[in-house]
């Protein structure tokens, strides 16, 4: 499945993060300030990459789950399991960052806008997925059920997004939401791109780290079961 082994990939992504994240932060903090929003706009350089990573994780989760049901190889399931946990963390980051930005700019912490609502539901689906896994004992059944929930959930997220968008735009024009500056100057776009790449690399570092952790956890659990069986005999 991989060109290198997991620990090697994890190290590559780890060093990538160490280089890219400070570079991106430096660029973001030295970029020209937003003419309308002032310093608060700089939250964007963290918020947009976390939201991107949260959705990217959803796509990765969907892909891993489909691959597991198709190939039935355990590593696809481990990857899916690891992705869901990290995806949930980035979703929380995106929601928190968005709220901190929303308070000074929109005047409210939260609004029932399509993107916000869909992101909140995405978090619910990640949490439901992880809870379902926690409540299942048989590892094979856990992998199979979780994959079905992940696939159904990730098919639903875009439908939720569009239905909320449709509903909101038909009934009330966005009053708190001013449309953002439509096109971004290169000096702002470049740091944002670097940060997005940095977050994506960081996501992969965490993913490979967590996959190894899950593999070891499952190994320990299997050995524990074996010892228990031996004691009983």
């Amino acid at each position: 499945m991989f060109l290198f082994k997991l620990p090697t990939w994890q190290r590559i992504m780890g060093w990538g993060t160490v280089v890219l994240l400070p570079t991106g932060l430096f660029l973001a903090l030295t970029a020209p300030p937003d003419a309308f929003q002032g310093p608060a706009a700089r939250i964007m350089y963290v918020h947009v990459p976390s939201a991107w990573t949260a959705m990217f994780a959803g796509v990765v989760l969907f892909f891993n789950s489909v691959m597991y049901l198709w190939r039935r190889h355990k590593s696809w399931d481990t990857a899916a399991h690891a992705t869901a946990g990290i995806g949930a963390v980035f979703t929380v980051l995106a929601l928190l960052g968005g709220s901190i930005w929303g308070k000074p700019i929109w005047g409210v912490w939260w609004t029932w806008d399509a993107r916000l609502t869909a992101t909140a539901v995405l978090l619910m689906i990640y949490v439901g997925y992880l809870m379902l896994r926690a409540f299942l004992d048989d590892p094979e059944k856990e992998a199979r059920f979780a994959a079905v929930v992940a696939i159904v959930g990730m098919i639903d997220v875009p439908i939720i997004h569009f239905s909320v968008k449709w509903w909101r735009t038909l009934h009330q024009a966005p009053s708190v939401m001013k449309p953002d500056v439509p096109s971004m100057p290169f000096e702002m776009l470049f740091p944002l791109l670097v940060m997005t790449v940095a977050f994506t690399v960081f996501f992969h570092y965490l993913l490979f780290l967590r996959m190894q952790l899950l593999q070891k956890e499952k190994l320990i659990e299997a050995q524990r079961q074996a010892v228990l069986r031996e004691v009983q005999l």
């Binding site: 619910m124 689906i125 439901g128 159904v152 959930g153 239905s163």
Partner: peptide, 8 residues
């Protein structure tokens, strides 16, 4: 927990 978010 599973069905409510999905039926939105």
């Amino acid at each position: 927990l599973l069905i409510l978010p999905l039926v939105i």
